[in-house]
Structures are given as C-alpha cells and as structure tokens.
C-alpha cells in the first residue's frame, strides 16, 4: 500500500476561528467551519490528482462537528426553539463526507469514524480490494472562546485537517512512501500519536515505525 500524497493543515486559533472558506479552491454553499476545515485539508492533499469514482473516503475525528452541534443544542435548550435546518444537517457527520465526495466526484464508500488508526485499517482492506482511499483526520475548535477554555482546560487549542491519499500501485502519479507490516495489536499502553506520522512525512527521515494503540505499521519513503 502506497501513500501518493498528504496534507497537514494545522491552526492554533487565539480569538476567532480563521475563515477557511477563503482558502478553498472549490467552495460550497451553507458549509460551516468543520466542513470547510475538512475540505481545505482534502483539497491540499489531492492537488490536481484525479482518482476513480469508486474510491473510498474516511474521515476520523475525536469530536466531530462541534460548532453546529452547539448551535442546535443552544436553539433547543437555551432558546427553546426549533434548530435551523442547516445547522442540524451540518452537524450530521455524513454531511462532511458528502461535500468531500462531491468535491472529488467520488461515488464509493464514505465512512466517518472516531479514530485514525481504525480508518487506516479499513482503508487498507479497501486498497486490497483495488480501491484508492482518501483518509482524513479532522478536528475543529469551538468558536465560543469561553466555552472552549472551560471544556478543554487547555490554552492551546488546535484545529487540524490532515489527509493521506493511499492506493495500491495503480495511480499514474509516483507514490511518495510505502506502508507495510500493517498489524492489529491488543491495547498498547503508550501509543504513538497520529501527529507523529504526519510529522515524519514532513521530515527528512526515511523510515518510521508507527506503534499505535491497536495498530502497528512501517512507512518507508520512496
């Protein structure tokens, strides 16, 4: 299994969340911060690469679309009214998958998942079945700074949208790295963070052993 491209967008918002829509190559109506964040990372990963319609998409996220979820909860429980339909729709995780698929004209499998390790394992099986797979790891910050500090109890709140394009040896582009020795393991008490994997791809190192909570693999740059 080969990595053909990657992106590693990270932002540390201090006051307001940045306007990602301005940075997008292709924009969509009624998308919110989380969806635009996902689109931004995916567009940077895909650049001009064309992939088959039957390709798969995985988005992993710890917290999903928090800002639209908060808007819906506030409407119902603080303002005692029906939520705005598009806030509800954007809060549904499948909506983000929809826009990514629409952006790249994909009609294959789309899965929203809570951890990147599991996304890699499932993408690996898709690649074994000759599918190209786009995998993202996306998490947004809460736009309400006060609520943000209270919930996360941390000064540095990061937003990130990191993506990998993986496939067997079938794309016309040259792969940048090979993933091998993919194995599932029982719980590992001191796992690597997925950040290490993307840091490695940006570094000058040639090889990296990723040992996660339930997954181990090797990446060798080509």
């Amino acid at each position: 299994m080969y990595i053909y491209s990657f992106s590693n967008y990270t932002d540390i918002p201090t006051d307001n969340l940045s306007d990602k829509k301005k940075l997008l190559i292709k924009r969509f109506n009624r998308t919110d911060n989380f969806i635009n964040l996902a689109l931004l990372g995916a567009q940077r990963c895909m650049k001009d690469i064309k992939i088959n319609k039957d390709s798969s998409i995985y988005i992993s996220s710890k917290n999903g679309n928090m800002n639209s979820t908060i808007k819906v909860l506030e409407a119902i429980f603080l303002e005692n009214k029906l939520p705005m339909p598009f806030n509800f729709l954007n809060s549904v995780n499948a909506s983000t998958l929809f826009f990514i698929a629409q952006n790249f004209n994909i009609e294959g499998k789309t899965i929203f998942i809570n951890n990147f390790e599991s996304a890699i394992v499932q993408a690996y099986i898709d690649v074994l079945n000759n599918k190209t797979t786009l995998i993202g790891n996306v998490d947004e910050a809460i736009s309400d700074c006060e609520l943000r500090q209270k919930r996360f109890k941390s000064k540095d709140i990061k937003e990130y949208s990191r993506w990998l394009l993986i496939s067997s040896n079938s794309l016309t582009e040259k792969p940048i790295a090979k993933i091998s020795d993919i194995k599932l393991t029982t719980d590992n008490k001191s796992p690597n963070d997925i950040t290490n994997l993307f840091d490695f791809l940006e570094s000058s190192s040639s090889s990296f052993n990723f040992i996660g909570k339930n997954l181990s693999l090797n990446i060798t740059k080509l």
Binding site: K62, N63, N93, A94, I111, F112, I113, N114, S118, L184
Partner: peptide, 27 residues
C-alpha cells in the same frame, strides 16, 4: 461531555475487549 471515545473505552474496559475499537457515524 465531549469525548466520544469514552463510549468504546467504557464498554471495552468493562467487558474486557482489547482489540481495535471503532465508532462509525454515518447517520
């Protein structure tokens, strides 16, 4: 209560599941 991972962690710890744990959310 933010951390969605708590669902899998809680169940896996109580039941004794030690392999990979995943939450899929596609409506």
């Amino acid at each position: 209560d933010l951390e969605i991972d708590k669902i899998t962690k809680n169940i896996a710890d109580k039941i004794g599941i030690k392999n990979i744990k995943t939450i899929i959310s596609t409506a």
